[in-house]
Amino acid sequence: MTKELTQFELLRELEPVAEQHLNRHLEMAKDWYPHDYVPWDQGRNFAAMGGVDWEPSQSRLSEIAKVSLITNLLTEDNLPAYHREIAANFTQDGAWGTWVGRWTAEENRHAIVIRDYLTVTRAVDPVALEQARMTHMTTGVPTPTDPRWGGVLMQVAYVTFQELATRLSHRNTGKVCDDPIADHMLQRVAADENLHMIFYRSLTGAALDLVPDRMMDDINYLVQRFEMPGRSMPNFRRYAIMMAKHGIYDPRQHLQEVIEPVLKHWNVFDRTDFGPRGEQARDELAAYLVKLDQDATKFEEQRDRMLAREAARDMQIA
């Protein structure tokens, strides 16, 4: 029986790949500054500073744009919880530690710029936003109680999918804002998320080569249980449904723009280096993707019927 590598041994074996892709990231990443993406001339004082407090008529965003921006921001706000999780699994030594620090610093810019934009433009209620931030960060990210959860392999695989999902959500949110400033800002954020995804995707690919059966088993586990990190925020379920309804992030996009492209990049279904454990995991994953496709079709049919009813109702009102 082949000896299972310990977490320390996995980190040691994968560190040259981490260093290679850390250096690639540093070459590819472009410096940018949150203050350059915020329309400061739209700002004015709130009541505590002699101005006027927020009220709904001040926002120029649609309801779905507000919901999406709040969801994206609160997801980014929980960075300390993500940092703890990644630092615990990657360690803070060598290339791993350098990546953890760099990734954390880059992610923090996303919350800074989105919050500044929302506050300056009075797009959402800043008091409610702060209350939601406090609640969400106090809760953190619920860690699965499944004993299989955790470790460097599962972490790099999970964050690969999560970063790509977040990129898609930011990009599509920019499109519904009907504000070129917001769209430009969120394109910048999405570009960061894409580079982060590439780092994690590369590490997972290297892990597939190093321990194919074990990594395939973890990928199968994660895809079947995938949840966004913002799931503990207030109103997350209601907001997620609204975002799916309006095409910000729906089951079809999750399958075709997140899961399938990553699996294709890893060549999961054409690999020939799996043993019985990996083969079984791959077969289970293939069956689950069929179910995901069926679920996406059902959702689309329900959404189309709902939108048709809403359109007919609006016609009657008009």
Rank of each mutant, 00 (worst) to 15 (best):
L263Q: 00
E63F: 09
R148W: 09
T119N: 11
Y82R: 00
R60C: 00
L292E: 09
T135S: 14
E107C: 10
D250R: 02
E310P: 01
M197H: 13
A286T: 01
Q162M: 06
E27L: 12
M185R: 03
A182E: 02
T297P: 02
M243I: 14
D209I: 03
R271Y: 02
P261K: 07
R102E: 08
V67D: 04
T204Q: 07
L22N: 03
P142F: 10
I198E: 15
L10C: 11
A105K: 07
D217N: 12
T173M: 10
T166L: 04
H136T: 13
R167C: 14
N89L: 13
D283H: 06
Y37V: 06
D293P: 02
T138Y: 13
P229G: 04
Y200C: 08
L153N: 10
Y249T: 08
Q316N: 02
Q256D: 15
F161P: 01
I112W: 07
N89G: 12
Q155F: 13
D125C: 11
A286W: 07
M242V: 12
R148N: 05
R271H: 01
L164C: 05
Q58R: 01
M134S: 10
K175A: 10
R303K: 12
E163P: 06
Y239N: 13
E13V: 14
M137R: 08
Q42C: 00
F299M: 08
A48M: 10
K175Q: 08
L153I: 15
A123S: 15
P126Y: 04
D41G: 00
F269V: 00
T121A: 04
F8I: 05
S59C: 00
H184P: 00
L208Q: 04
N72P: 03
T98H: 12
A111Q: 09
R214K: 14
Y288C: 02
A105R: 03
G94W: 10
A286Q: 11
E284F: 03
T91N: 15
A206W: 11
P126Q: 03
A111K: 04
G101T: 03
Q280N: 12
T98E: 15
A48Y: 14
G151R: 07
V268R: 00
M1Q: 06
V152H: 09
I86W: 08
L11Q: 14
A29F: 07
R282C: 09
T166C: 09
V38F: 01
N108F: 07
E19Q: 15
L168P: 10
D270C: 01
M228H: 06
T135G: 08
G51W: 11
R102N: 09
K264C: 03
V159W: 09
R188A: 10
A105C: 03
K30H: 10
M315K: 12
T75Y: 04
D93E: 15
E193D: 11
A281Q: 13
E27Q: 14
P180W: 09
D218G: 13
Y33E: 07
G97Y: 12
R60M: 00
G278W: 06
D293W: 02
D125F: 05
M315W: 11
V52N: 03
M215C: 15
G230V: 05
E260M: 14
I114D: 05
K245F: 14
W99V: 04
A311M: 02
G247H: 07
L118R: 00
L5C: 06
N235E: 09
P234K: 04
W40R: 02
I219T: 04
D93K: 14
D93W: 05
H25C: 02
H25Y: 07
K264A: 12
F90E: 07
V67M: 01
L208C: 02
A29Q: 07
